[in-house]
Every structure is written in C-alpha cells, then in structure tokens.
C-alpha cells in the first residue's frame, strides 16, 4: 500500500502542480485574447470593407448612418474621433459632422436674441434642414445629437436637456441645475409655467419655485407675463410653438445690433 503523501515532499509536489496549472491557464487566456483580437481585427476590416462599399449610402441615408454608428460603437470605433485617419478619410463623416456642427452654431446664434440660447431639437432640426437646402444630404435628429455631443466636448457651452421625449439644446452656458431642468420640462407642453403649477406637480415650497423662475428670468430664458389673470405666467420663447416656423426678418436682425 502506498503511503499518503503528507510529508514535505508531497507539499512541494502539490505546489509545483498548482504553478503548472496556473501557467497553463495564463497561456490559455493569452491564446484566447490573441484569438479574440484576431476576430476583432477581422471584424474591423470587414467593417472597413463594408464602410467603403456602402460609402455613398452611409453619407446619404440617415437611418443607415445611425446603424453604422451603432455597429462602430460596439467594437469601440469612433468614426468621429479624429479628422484624420481611415474612417474620416474613407467616409468623410468627420467633415460631415464638422459641417453640421458649424450649421448648428449658426442657427443657435441667429436665434439667441429670441430664445436666450435655448431651442428645441425639433426647431433646430427644421432650421438646419432649411439652411442646408434641398440638395444636401439628409440629416436626422440623431446626427444632430452626435454633432452637439462633439461640440460639447470642445467646451463650447453646448448642452442638451431631456424634455418630453426629445431635447432642449442649450447654446449659451447658463447655469442650469436639476431644479431648472424639471421646470423646463413642466413648461414644455404649454410654453409657460406658473408658481402654482410647479407647486402642484412637484410638491415644492413656494420659495423653491420662485427661486427657479427668477433664475430663468435672470438668464434671459423666460419672460414674465403679468396680465394672465390672478397669477403671473413665465413664458419660454424657446418653447413658444408659434415661433418655430418664423424666420428672422431683416428688421429683427437689426434689433440684435442696436
């Protein structure tokens, strides 16, 4: 009968085996990584091939563009990350979003005197499309959101406030905290909001509501209407529906530079 290995020799043997297993394990893991990166590489080159094949489609069709962007995101490729390199050269997408960014800034600047630097994504979309003309590539709201995110990274004071399933785009660096954001969300339906409405829906103290509204007045984002009956209404030009379709008249443009 064999003696059970309980001595010092046995312990050493066991340790050795463990080390061997570990080594083997590392090798296996390394193999896997090598294999995976090979796969990823293939995927990447397929994606590149796909991109070059469907270049026109990606540039022309906004839905296609969204899907392509999503595909890129899953493998950690950002076609917008730099102006140079394969992706932007191949697709011209870098240029596309750069151009879009400039157009967004233009629209926001032209309307700043009206809305204090706050605009709905819908209105922005409409105006950018109008500015690009009939024959330019189609642009989706998803494209706008991407372009705005790029502008945000550049520290241009751009930001987006989620409101009722869409966004309010902020082009002027006003300090807006959560309180301001929820009040804007509340104002979204009618274009204005009152102290009672805020107290009713958010269960806030009067002071807190007044504080937020005063701030919106101070930032030039809200206008006061004291002829609305018993209670003052705080109107947001950015959410004033009738404005969305109005072009900036030459007279209005003159008022901007008194």
């Amino acid at each position: 009968m064999h003696r059970r290995g309980v001595g010092a020799g046995a312990i050493a043997k066991k340790k050795l085996a463990e080390a061997k297993y570990k080594e083997r394990g590392t090798v296996l893991a390394e193999d896997q990584i090598v294999q995976m990166s090979k796969q990823l590489e293939t995927f990447k080159s397929n994606l590149e091939e796909f991109a070059s094949k469907h270049k026109q489609e990606i540039r022309k069709n906004p839905q296609f563009r969204v899907q392509f962007q999503e595909m890129c995101a899953t493998i950690g490729v950002d076609p917008l990350a730099s102006g140079k390199g394969f992706w932007s050269e191949m697709l011209g997408v870098g240029d596309f979003y750069y151009e879009l960014g400039v157009q967004i800034i233009e629209v926001c600047l032209a309307l700043k005197h009206r809305n204090g630097g706050l605009i709905t994504l819908d209105e922005l979309h409409q105006r950018v499309l109008k500015g690009r003309g009939k024959y330019a590539q189609d642009v989706s709201q998803d494209d706008l959101v991407r372009a705005i995110k790029k502008l945000k990274v550049m520290g241009s004071g751009f930001g987006m406030i989620p409101v009722g399933g869409s966004y309010l785009v902020q082009s002027v660096p006003a300090e807006l905290n959560m309180d301001h954001t929820v009040v804007l969300q509340l104002a979204e339906k009618k274009g204005y909001v009152t102290v009672s409405e805020i107290r009713g829906s958010l269960k806030w103290e009067r002071e807190r509501a007044c504080h937020v509204l005063d701030h919106l007045l101070k930032e030039g984002l809200a206008w006061l209407d004291s002829q609305a009956g018993a209670e003052a209404q705080y109107w947001l030009p950015a959410l004033f529906a009738e404005l969305t379709s109005r072009d900036v008249t030459p007279e209005e443009a003159n008022q901007m530079t008194p």
Binding site: L224, Q227, Q233, W235, F240, E242, L243
Partner: peptide
C-alpha cells in the same frame, strides 16, 4: 407672445 405686453424686469 403674451409677455411682450408686460414690461420685462430683466
């Protein structure tokens, strides 16, 4: 725009 008819405080 209703508030246009109220002199603005800001």
């Amino acid at each position: 725009f209703p508030p246009f008819f109220t002199l603005q405080p800001n």
